[in-house]
């Protein structure tokens, strides 16, 4: 199972440099690992521990706190159907049944071709657009079963890759933080002035 690639190690080091303490970079690096493999591999956790100077157990403890980190392979598209009040009133249960039948899996399962993982989600804060779902955490609103079929068709044919990248991808455009904009590898208690780029705006 894979450790971080060389390119990702370089990026990881840049990310670590943005924080006062290396281990603060733990969660961003876990995202990086999930982006690389679609889920977080055991080796990636060991590798991250080495990079930030904590034990693998500590990486594991932090990582498993977050539902959005996966430790088993998941589908290229993770479909989260909201089941909380507003969505439930507006037909999310039917939507879930439909999805289960259409994909041939139960909520929590992954299709044999590795394309879809179906999950039951709690309120996604889009109640006004109920019933809603997310695919790789990108919203789809007010769905009917027919809309769902269409969505699955499009995803299966990889027609939506421009807006829905494979699971694990945090953003299509990687944010670049210039090194001078980070706090840098300085312990918080040693930071006496606000960063230069704030230009005194910190007083606000």
């Amino acid at each position: 199972m894979s450790r971080l690639t060389d390119a990702h190690v370089a990026l990881a080091k840049e990310i670590i440099g943005r924080y006062p303490r290396p281990k603060s970079a733990l969660v961003p690096l876990l995202h990086l690992a999930q982006e690389q493999d679609g889920y977080i591999t055991r080796d990636a956790m060991v590798h991250i521990g080495e990079l930030v100077g904590v034990t693998s157990a500590e990486v594991y403890g932090t990582a498993t706190f977050y539902e959005m980190f996966k430790f088993e392979p998941v589908g290229k598209y993770v479909v989260n159907i909201c089941g909380t009040m507003s969505c439930a009133l507006m037909g999310s249960e039917e939507l879930m049944h439909h999805a289960e039948q259409r994909l041939g899996i139960k909520a929590g399962g992954t299709t044999p071709d590795g394309m879809f993982t179906l999950e039951h989600a709690e309120c996604q804060a889009a109640c006004t657009e109920a019933p809603c779902l997310q695919v790789n955490y990108r919203y789809r609103y007010r769905l009917t079963p027919a809309d769902l079929d269409e969505l699955i068709d499009d995803l299966s044919a990889d027609r939506l890759t421009h807006e829905i990248p494979p699971h694990g991808t945090v953003a299509k455009v990687r944010q670049h933080i210039a090194s001078h904009r980070g706090v840098g590898a300085l312990a918080p208690e040693l930071v006496t002035e606000s960063p230069a780029w704030l230009n005194g705006k910190a007083a606000l």
Binding site: E58, Y60, G61, T64, F65
Partner: peptide, 10 residues
Amino acid sequence: GDPLITFTHR
């Protein structure tokens, strides 16, 4: 100084 056991999950 051996943090080899830890709280996991949530």
